[in-house]
Design a protein around this nucleic acid. Sequence first.
DNA 1: CTGAAAGCGCTTACAG
DNA 2: CTGAAAGCGCTTACAG
Lengths: 358, 358
Amino acid sequence: MATIYDVAKAAGVSPKTVSRVMNGDAPVNQQTRESVERAMLDLNYVPSSAARTMRSQRSGLIGMITGAISTSHHFEDTGLPEIYLVQGAQRVIDQSNRTLLIADSGGSAERIPALLQTFLEHRVEGILYVAEYHREVSLPLNVRDRPVVLVNCFDAADTPAILPDDEGGQFALVDGLVKRGHRRIGYLTLPQSQIASGLRVDGYARALAANGIDYDEGLVQIGALPSIVNEFDLLWDALDRVLRAEPTVICCANDKMAMRVYGLLRERGIAIPQQISVAGYDDYRMIAEHLHPRLTSAELPYAAMGALAADKLLRLIGGTVKPNEPNREVVSAPVAWRESVQTRDGVVTQLHSRRKDP
Amino acid sequence: MATIYDVAKAAGVSPKTVSRVMNGDAPVNQQTRESVERAMLDLNYVPSSAARTMRSQRSGLIGMITGAISTSHHFEDTGLPEIYLVQGAQRVIDQSNRTLLIADSGGSAERIPALLQTFLEHRVEGILYVAEYHREVSLPLNVRDRPVVLVNCFDAADTPAILPDDEGGQFALVDGLVKRGHRRIGYLTLPQSQIASGLRVDGYARALAANGIDYDEGLVQIGALPSIVNEFDLLWDALDRVLRAEPTVICCANDKMAMRVYGLLRERGIAIPQQISVAGYDDYRMIAEHLHPRLTSAELPYAAMGALAADKLLRLIGGTVKPNEPNREVVSAPVAWRESVQTRDGVVTQLHSRRKDP
DNA sequence: CTGAAAGCGCTTACAG
DNA sequence: CTGAAAGCGCTTACAG
């Protein structure tokens, strides 16, 4: 392939001038520039990032390490939508004229050191470490010397982290349900050992409290457990208990569970949303928009998290992080209201008339 | 960071010997090796792939360009499961001691030349070009000088390509349905302008013919169109026409459509699978295993396609492709039989007794 | 089994 | 606005 020397010779200038035309780091005479550009085109010149990296000591590479692209062996295969996270990060990184290097752990943690080694050989300028679900992690020590941003996870060392606002998301969902006239709000959760689940139940409880509604234990049931063989049986029983508490709406731990609940409710002959409303979490559009009726869901803002994480990492690399900037940032997102939730007209009217009464 | 010279000095050898220890490309005295390895550890030495690339003229990088990681603007958001494709390719590439560089077109074709430029700057040894859905593409010319394997697509220039066996997949599905006693087999398709859809209808027809069943036009209806606003209305009408042809099972163009059909059938009070069986395509587990009942589906073998594509690309790079090897390869996959399809016992018995009759 | 010299293709640091 | 020299950190090609 043509080198900068070939271009320089063809254009009748020095290599350094070719370099200046490419990088725009110093003024170049218009005519000189044009002849250089012509030479680059004629020779089909493509600069070598290896040479550039070696001399400048800046690789322009950002490493992202993730287990997203994997058949995960943990709680559920929550993985796929994390792709939005990759997309969000990539957009920001492209804009900074850098290249994102993505390594997939394939779901097995023991591969991560090797992936990091590869990143280090490529002299990545920073690392985005993405977890498959909201959880605590501990980073291998050999990363510590360059900027890292955790995404969808956090560690004991308080490494900068971008997290979803699980508490706020569930709050907004439940608060919105109350505003739509619901007061008996069922909730099929995951076990509290799941960090996201604990936070969401907190949000559920806060929304009830904010609206003066008592927390009824019967309305909140665990709808799934890790590695249960017959998942539908467990969910069936949990749904049974929730229904006995007479809800007008059932919130589900995630959209996948909501999809199952659709099947179970219909098996019982209960119409959605006419007889009972249903809501999910994640706003996983592949599911939410194709269920019938379409599913109301609180968005897990992966794209925004990816973008924010990339932005933060770039600022860490550039040294432009504000001194008072918190290490952990939480990303909120709106609820996507769709037809699976029906407004309880009577109650809403009642609320309206109350407001107008005094 | 420590360089090979630092390691050489610490170990009391020449840089070339350190290189030999790292690469194992020539015999090294056991004691020498050990002192070099100790020095590498002590100094926390990580070789620079940029320097290695520049001198050896081999980057060890494979580029993958994809629109998978995107909100696609075409027919439907088929995107997400292509991640399995990335996973399949990465496993193979890791084993060859290379690194996969993934670039996402974000769904917009105009970004692709820039992504290719980045790949060329990094001197990728080959390129995997992944389409979001089975289709024809045309490659930008500037790729032509290095090995390329198309995945999920093909071009007029007969570039090596790995494709899903859509015809065979639908054949296996329909043939299996017949073996399970079904003879009136409805099919909600996508328009034939979709290559995959055309092939699958071919497979459907071949399976009927192979089993001596007449093709009934009334049983085959288009269930979705691109950019239709109210997608459920169109599907509702198509489903209506199919039902009038009195099928015992309905095949759907993909799992997402099957998910919608679940909703529509239940709205009509038709029980799955007791009154009618349903099958999908893609075996998109996020959907298929969480619908109730779980959905029978023909697998779109993305992981296998990714692995095969990577394997082929590596052989193209290594020059070990067999001369008689076809440029286009098709990947087959089994059908995942689940509870949404019910065996028609009566008919099956009838078939059995027939065989035993003469 | 080991080493000295050169060079891969850029950018840095300096000079003019 | 432009250029000559040196060097980034490896591996190649050669020699012993």
